[in-house]
Amino acid sequence: MNPAHPSILIVAEPQGQQPHPVAYELLHKGRQLADARQATLDVLLCGTPGMETASLIHRGADRVYLMEDPCFALPEEQIFVAQMTAFLKELKPEVILTGATSFGRSLAPRLAAALNTGLTADCTDLHMDENGRLVQTRPAFSENILANIMTDTLPQMATVRYQEFPQAMPNPEHQGEVVRLPLPLPVPDTGVVIEKLRQLEVDITKASVVVSGGRGLKQQDDFAMLRELARTLGGEVGASRTVVEDGFISKDHQVGYSGHRVKPQVYIACGISGSPQHLAGMKEADVIVAINTDPSAPIFQVADVGIVGDLYEVVPQMIRRYGGTWPVL
């Protein structure tokens, strides 16, 4: 380790054989912090043998510390923490950032406790102050306040909200080093038996984008178009009560007073007039986009972006424009 160059370290979470994309977002922010501190930007990735690491280097990592072992095949925080702690106590990074995914939010507190240091949860911004200390900004009280937090101990640790920062852009020219690490410890018996049951199902209340259809949809099959838009934007499909009652789509998708209440980053209402029942379920979305032929539809009163037009013209254009596919008729 070179004491002249402190390390800003990102803990990357495996997603199959790839790093979880939140690591790319952390590389974007981490690069700014590393430059401000004249530090190296390092990544610690634990995963099963055969992990892909080039994307981390291309997106700005100076070093990728790679620990590969079948013991990382299941989400068992204790194993990750035990192996990481042994290494991190040697490396002594100044800052450790972890993505605030479910796994990250479960792993980082144990890691912080093992390293006997503080941890700030779910940060939405980070910067270095004039003394080179990390200022961590996080929302609290159900997003009503933002607190700036600093850590007295080292390393300064934070988990960072997913989809808060842009991903660092890949640059194939960027040089970095992959340092393969042997497991520092034998794999401990944690006293936990883990088995995978099934893949995740639709949960529109957790989606970051919800594309909803209403009375403006002429037939059930037309939901395919909304599904493609949702897929393109990494979201899920919702629906108004009318089309659920008409049997176009299951009640799992219903948004409103007698359906689900959703709070996505972007809510796209297609052919939905915006009855109070519907508004009750989606008015807390960060951004509301409304597409409707009726300029007097109440949905336009709550929309950030209102498009007066036919969803059958607008939605296909949106799909093609934002990277999905839809045939031109």
Partner: peptide
């Protein structure tokens, strides 16, 4: 529990 991409069953044999 729901972690990563799916649902897992975690069984703790001792204290937890």
């Amino acid at each position: 529990v729901s972690l990563w991409d799916g649902f897992y069953r975690k069984t703790v044999t001792g204290k937890g």
